[in-house]
Design a protein around this nucleic acid. Structure first.
Lengths: 187, 187
DNA sequence: TTTGCTTTTTGATCATTGTCAAAAGCCCGG
DNA sequence: CCGGGCTTTTGACAATGATCAAAAAGCAAA
């Protein structure tokens, strides 16, 4: 919990009361490798913070799994579309390692917004930062070559190779596993 | 202005006072074709609402213009990264037609957030919706073929072809102008 | 250590898209 | 109606990445 409270300082400094109220609404969740936080067709009612562990988001396209993100320590995770709209998810969120998470429900978060302007501000700012991150990834994914995308990933998250199978990484980069293997052998 | 106030109802219903305060902070801006709302290296200090007109966002990569979005009526527009962080923009925003816009500065918006919890909520919700939109575009751009992306664009914004040169559209889709031309001749 | 399963690499071939160059089409001002 | 500039299309060839198939490497349980 300390890690979570420390982390949110990066977005906005809460009043002690708001911070306490927020902390009281999170519950610890411990899950094993290969379990799911969200699955296609079900509504995702929680937002999670990763204290320890690794996860991936993927969906099925033409019968194949497309991994579109990974998350590690100090990240918030949810099926964003489903959590926001409270409609059935189109994606699956799977644990890549046994993980320690903190969860808050959509309802509790909404209540907190009504009670503490502070907390709504924190979430607004966090959402903006996540938007910027997605925008960068979009540019990178859409307008650079496979090799550039891989090198970029190595620079930004060198640890990823030790925690995630190459097949998932290839999918994440939008290339086939074979192409990724060839890129790696060339570098 | 009526159009703007009508539009924001889609996100959240403001109190009359908040609505009035918000309206008072927007200023009308009328610009000609080919003028710029933002240019690389300059800080983008305003958020704009498009009442009438068309714009594109682009940046320079390896000496070439990469168009990464278009905006038309009833959309908010800014160099998001620059507006949020107040750092120099990496992109350019250019008018594709003479346009009528409403502008609000970052400073005034921040003041409104302090005064009206309402308005901060509206912006939080709008940001979430824009996030979901970007996420959809990301998936579409990264994991579908050029032809699928083009067909998708035709479905979602059939009007775009009459308002935007094909060269920009090709860039937006992440393909060369020649490839787009060949895709069009095949369909 | 051996066996069996999964992950990763390598090879050969094919399809898609990019690049360079030129031609055709279109629009606007004179 | 004509000419010039811009946009769009077409052609030829090269590069990138996908697919199918098989080999190699890694790893964990017996």
């Amino acid at each position: 919990m300390k890690q979570l409270l420390d982390h949110i300082k990066n977005y906005y400094l809460l009043s002690p009361e708001a911070k306490q109220a927020l902390a009281a609404c999170f519950e610890q969740v411990i899950l094993n490798k290969n379990e799911y936080l969200a699955t296609e067709g079900k509504i995702c009612r929680h937002l999670y913070f990763v204290q320890q562990g690794a996860l991936r988001g993927y969906y099925i396209l033409d019968g194949k799994e497309i991994t579109h993100w990974f998350a590690f320590e100090k990240n918030f995770v949810t099926s964003f579309h489903s959590f926001i709209t409270q409609q059935p998810a189109v994606e699956n969120i799977q644990l890549l390692e046994g993980s320690v998470l903190w969860a808050i429900s959509k309802d509790k978060l909404s209540d907190l917004f009504d009670l503490y302007h502070d907390i709504e501000r924190l979430v607004r700012i966090a959402t903006e930062k996540y938007y910027i991150r997605l925008e960068e990834r979009f540019i990178n994914a859409h307008f650079k070559t496979a090799t550039e995308r891989y090198e970029n990933l190595l620079q930004q998250r060198p640890h990823i190779l030790e925690r995630v199978p190459l097949g998932y990484i290839a999918s994440y980069l939008g290339i086939s596993q074979e192409t990724l293997s060839r890129i790696r052998s060339r570098i």
